[in-house]
Amino acid sequence: MEQVSTLERILRGIAISFVIIFFMFPILWIFLMSFQTNETILQVPPQLFFEPTIVNYEGLITGQLETAAGSLKIEFMGNLFNSLFLSTAAVIVGLILGVPAAYAFARLKFKGSEDIAFTLLSFRFAPPLLVLLPLTIYFQKIGLADTYVGLIWVYQLIVLPLILWIVRGYFEDIPADIEYAYRIAGHGFWSTFRKIALPLAGPGIAAAGLLAFIFSWNNFIFALVLASADKQPVTVGALAFITASGINYGQIAAGIVLSIAPTFALAMYAQRYLVEGLSLGAVKG
């Protein structure tokens, strides 16, 4: 506890403002761009004051893209739905598979458990392109290419290791004595898992789920290769704005705003869990 001088307080304020501006500028700029037409965007020097327009958003929602070369049909709202559906489903599947596995890795130390856990984590290190080519071929052979099921399956490459490692750390943080105490009180293994381990690891599971959701939402490469237009999430769908007659910056910006809105809201809402989940659970694993 120290006394802070006025000068120091002012300097701190300036430093913090600088950091905020540095990190928030791209987001702010895109937000502003989304209310401008292509013409105003491309003006040199850029205008700070302009006539705001919602034409970009209109275009996205109606699915009718007006360009200099004519009008174009795009599936942006469909893409948004795909993103939501794919990410949610991937996280649910990931939690169902990952949480019990994490518990097993945390509590039941069996031969080779460390190796298996690390192998699963190493999927996160490998560049996705490494697995994509063989995967595409197999998926086409067994009819999983361009299906939701196939995509959700592949998304597990992103989701599972994340959930496994974060949640495992949380399970390990629960003192074994608490579970022993519940067992000795007369409750069975599964009951102990449901009534003690799951609730106590709850914040970790929530954090892992949220992170996994955000990671799946932001995924680009799997969907680009494995999904056709009607299964595409927004990340891939945004490519449609790059047309033969030019790039529609305004619509891209509006698309970005719409597509980051859900994850942004989620992250803001669960900020505390996220920070905990990332700093505690994952490091401990």
């Binding site: 003192p175 004595d177 608490i178 022993y180 105490a181 519940y182 000795i184 003690i196 609730p199 106590l200």
Partner: peptide, 11 residues
């Protein structure tokens, strides 16, 4: 059984 660190169910 009673534990050294109590091991109460925190929730």
């Amino acid at each position: 059984m009673a534990f050294q660190n109590f091991a109460l169910f925190p929730h």
